[in-house]
Amino acid sequence: MSLDTVVEDIREEAHARAEDIRAEGEARADEIESAAEEDAEEIRAEAEREADREVEQLREQRLSSAKLEAKQKRLEARRDVLSDVREEVEDELAALVGDTREELTRALLEGASDEFDEGDDVNVYGRADDEELIESILADYDGYEYAGEYDCLGGVVVESDQSRVRVNNTFDSVLEDVWEDNLREISNRLFEQ
């Protein structure tokens, strides 16, 4: 199953959940509106002119409150769905194996290596489970050595004392950049209206 398929499945599930929550909010708004209209009829019976004014104020307040409550619930539901999607993406990244994991790790190391001068002693950190993978990739780099574990989903953190540079090219940092850059589009796709 490809990552695109998983992402699409997650999007469809998130969209369905968002629709359910939206429907609940609209039903609640209808209930509140009905209650406000019933109150309005009782007030009109007591005093026509004063009641009209009070009914309108009460009705507007309740409608506004119901709309605000429904909007808040929709926003909360969206945040929850986005959080769930993010967690599932992180789980998928952490679970990558084989050639895909090697290609991504190699590309992230290559991108980080551009920041260092030839001849620098470069320390590379990575996920504990990726130690063998990183060491095998580092065999292609002079002056680079695996320096220990870094708590991340994958990828590398690369640093050198000579250059005083530290590059965080982990799956986590890439995901954070992509997530922030595309959050509006992700949200629009999940919650199309």
Rank of each mutant, 00 (worst) to 15 (best):
T5V: 08
V6A: 14
V7R: 14
E12W: 04
E12R: 15
A14D: 05
H15Q: 03
R17S: 03
A18G: 09
E19F: 06
E19W: 10
D20S: 05
I21P: 00
I21L: 10
E24R: 10
E26T: 02
S34M: 04
A36D: 04
A36H: 02
E37C: 01
A40W: 06
E41W: 03
E42V: 14
R44T: 01
R44Q: 03
A45G: 03
A47H: 15
E48M: 02
R49C: 04
E50A: 13
E50P: 02
E50K: 05
D52Y: 07
L58M: 15
L63T: 13
K71Q: 15
K71L: 10
K71S: 10
Q72D: 08
R74I: 10
L75A: 06
A77I: 01
R78K: 12
R79M: 05
S83H: 14
R86D: 06
R86V: 00
E87W: 09
E88Q: 15
V89D: 00
L93T: 12
A94M: 07
V97P: 04
T100F: 00
A107R: 13
A112H: 13
D114N: 09
D117V: 07
D121I: 12
V122L: 00
V124K: 15
Y125G: 08
R127M: 07
E132G: 05
L133C: 10
I134P: 00
E135H: 11
S136H: 07
D140V: 01
Y144A: 15
E145V: 07
Y146K: 03
G148K: 03
V157L: 14
V157Y: 06
V158Q: 01
D161C: 03
V165K: 14
V165W: 04
R166M: 13
V167M: 14
V167A: 12
N169K: 11
S173M: 12
S173D: 13
V178M: 13
D181Q: 11
N182K: 03
L183R: 15
I186T: 03
N188S: 12
L190C: 06
F191H: 00
E192Q: 09
